[in-house]
Design a protein around this nucleic acid. Sequence first.
DNA 1: GCATGATCATGC
DNA 2: GCATGATCATGC
Length: 445
Amino acid sequence: MTTRTYNPASPESLREHAKLLIGHSLEEVVGKYDLDHAANKGKLGTLVEEHHYQYRPNNASDHEPDFVEAGVELKVTGVVPRKGDGVAYQAKERLVLTMIHYFGLVDEAWDTSSFLKKCRLMLILFYLYQKELPATQRKFVMSPVLWQFPEKDLEIIRRDWELIQQKILDGKAHELSEGDTFYLAACRKGSGGPKERLKRQPFSDILAKSRAFSLKPSYVNTIIDSTWSDEELIGNEKDAEKGLEKITLEKFDGLEGLSVDEIAESYDYPIAEDKPKSYYAGLSLRILGTKKRWLPEFVKAGIVLKTIRLAQNGSPKEAISFPTFDFIETSRQSWEESVFYEKINQKFFFVIFQYDKDRVLRFKKSMFWNMPYADRIEAEKVWSRTVEVISTGNMEMLPKMVDSNVAHVRPHGRNKADTLPLPNGGSFTKQCFWLNQKYIKKQVN
DNA sequence: GCATGATCATGC
DNA sequence: GCATGATCATGC
């Protein structure tokens, strides 16, 4: 028998008990011996529950929170030093909440959903991710957070949940993507690779990858930030009921056909003769109601704002580029580990302008977009070919625009001399993935 | 006119 | 100084 020094029915007491871990690894607190003999060596969260709380993890965990009496679900997640300042932390990855059961989910209603039952109130512990250390030796950092979704966020999460459910009802579980939704995402969960066992879905014979509900990394960062301040977000609860998507699109109502200068004037945005590269993004943000260089709601949802200028014939002036990739790292990664994969699974918000016959740039429309399933498959092919080319070293064989109707690879450095090493010891001009202009044209029209 | 290659501009 | 987003330049 163990003596508990906390009250398992009190969320606040559970949080206080978690604080004892700060600055230590689990091994330091409960001893190595116990962990070596742990029945479940898999998940750090489970180990914390078993050994730090001495609480027997429930087995029907998909339907009830870990600490049943307190209604608290325990989550343990990795953070890394934030780029730039190195002082604060940021999420290492998405926070996986609970598995998606394709057959069960379709019969659920949001209010009584197993997701909500389980995740309404979460105690989130953060550890410093260090690759070289086993999980039980990683140190806990930051104050544990007792997280209850604000009403405004919960409304958006409900929509996300319903959208995922709808896709399964439509027999499209295999087409799910993290870019479908805003805060809550259906992330890949499972072994991956050739050994993976695909899942059956209720309304189609096509097998689907195993997925889990997760909070996007961007949302996890918002939770992390909340440990420093209680930021008041713009907007209000009434807005949230309409959904982030609708609110955003409504901001652009009535602007169709107006010239950039006319819009700038009515939004008190500087009218510039020589427009800097970031001009249209800045104007779009102003229309969305912020003077900042980003929109908190978009940051939280991981939505990427892109401005697109179309020529009179409807073709975008430019292709869309992604970050430069490291040849060596890319050649070692799996598709799902790749940055390109991550990027094309994001949700985008396009603000589209078009030049008229007098070469005046006018607002055309705005739209949310995420890459359709078939095109993600095509993008994977382009990526695979790229990996192949890197490994053979025949760099002139990199996929070009004519090789795919979705994406291609092109230089992306300071200049030709700006290179990165190749696995074979040579080096080559920095490259990145691009979405084809024609493809973008098709998607926005 | 378009595909491809090359480079610029900005913010962190 | 560099990553990223944006844009220019060329040759077919």
